[in-house]
């Protein structure tokens, strides 16, 4: 029984991380149809900011964390301005390939200007200790991560439903031209979407760094690959879909880790991707995608 509870909590914390990242991808996709593969490099920007703070001998964890999140937001905003504005009206494939390109450029910039090797960041170790409640051993990091994701989801929901700008963002995902006709600046809506996306990446960055304790140029690639898959499974562009997809992926991954025999350990990712592919073949547009007929005006 305790074992099951433990694994469920593991699945929740895995899922929380994927959900955080998937939300960041989905909010951008819902507005401009861009699959932002450079999201992973935003996480790496946060990681390298922590390195910068460490080399400046600033150890105050609040400053480090807030700094990393702010840097991620700024990087996200910059990418929107520099790289993604020219392909704003293009089809999803063009956007996807642009994002791939941006991702390769950033990874190699880190490699060129910082280091190809991992750099240790120790300032966040304090976040991780183990707690024991009713015989269940937990990592505090898992609890923080799950709680943060829940708070973020609630805050995002309030923002999208209770503020004018949030309303504009939601409306923009349905009919962008109409939003512009009502006098809201397109650039502001895009900026907000990328800022939120950067904020989510920054938060995810804190947890990833606290767990890994080091940063290298490919830090964000794998988590974002998974988040991307979560997004697609949930229904691309749907925010509830991103959250559902994230937690579902976390559950599948933990289930695979638990159920697969030790000898198949290296195949976990292969099985996860296989299940994802099967979900997509069952529902090509994802589980929670809105029903769209081919040929509809989008």
């Amino acid at each position: 029984m305790e074992y099951i509870v433990q694994q469920v909590l593991n699945a929740l914390s895995f899922g929380a991380e994927y959900a955080l990242l998937a939300l960041g991808l989905a909010i951008v996709f819902s507005i401009m149809g861009l699959v932002n593969f450079a999201h992973g490099e935003i996480i790496a920007v946060g990681g390298y900011t922590m390195v910068a703070f460490a080399s400046l001998a600033i150890g105050n964890p609040m400053i480090v964390m807030v700094g990393a999140v702010l840097a991620a937001m700024l990087a996200s905003l910059t990418l929107e301005r520099v790289a993604f504005r020219p392909v704003r009206k293009a089809d999803p494939t063009t956007g996807l390939l642009t994002a791939f390109g941006v991702s390769i450029v950033l990874q190699n910039l880190f490699l060129l200007f910082v280091s190809p090797r991992p750099i240790a960041v120790t300032s966040l170790y304090f976040l991780d200790w183990s707690i024991e409640i009713a015989g269940i051993r937990l990592a505090s990091l898992q609890v923080f991560e799950t709680l943060t994701t829940i708070i973020v989801i609630i805050a995002l929901m309030l923002f999208l439903r209770r503020t004018v700008l949030g309303l504009a963002v939601r409306a923009a995902s349905l009919d962008f031209e109409m939003v512009r006709l009502t006098g809201i600046r397109a650039n502001r809506v895009f900026a907000i979407a990328f800022l939120i996306s950067g904020l989510l990446a920054g938060l995810a960055c804190i947890f990833i760094m606290a767990r890994r304790g080091s940063v290298d140029p490919h830090l964000g690639f794998e988590p974002v690959l998974k988040a991307f898959v979560a997004c697609v499974v949930g229904g691309f562009g749907s925010l509830p879909g991103a959250v559902l997809g994230g937690f579902l992926l976390g559950a599948v991954e933990v289930a695979m880790l638990v159920m697969l025999p030790q000898s198949l350990g290296g195949m976990t990712d292969a099985f996860v991707f296989m299940i994802v592919a099967m979900i997509l073949i069952w529902r090509p547009d994802g589980i929670l995608s809105p029903a769209v007929e081919k040929g509809d005006k989008l």
Binding site: V35, D91, P92, T93, L96, F228, V229, V232, F236, V276, A277, L280, I281, P284, D285, G286, K294
Partner: peptide, 9 residues
Amino acid sequence: LTSIGATIV
């Protein structure tokens, strides 16, 4: 599958 879905698979 259509565009993005096919790419993911």
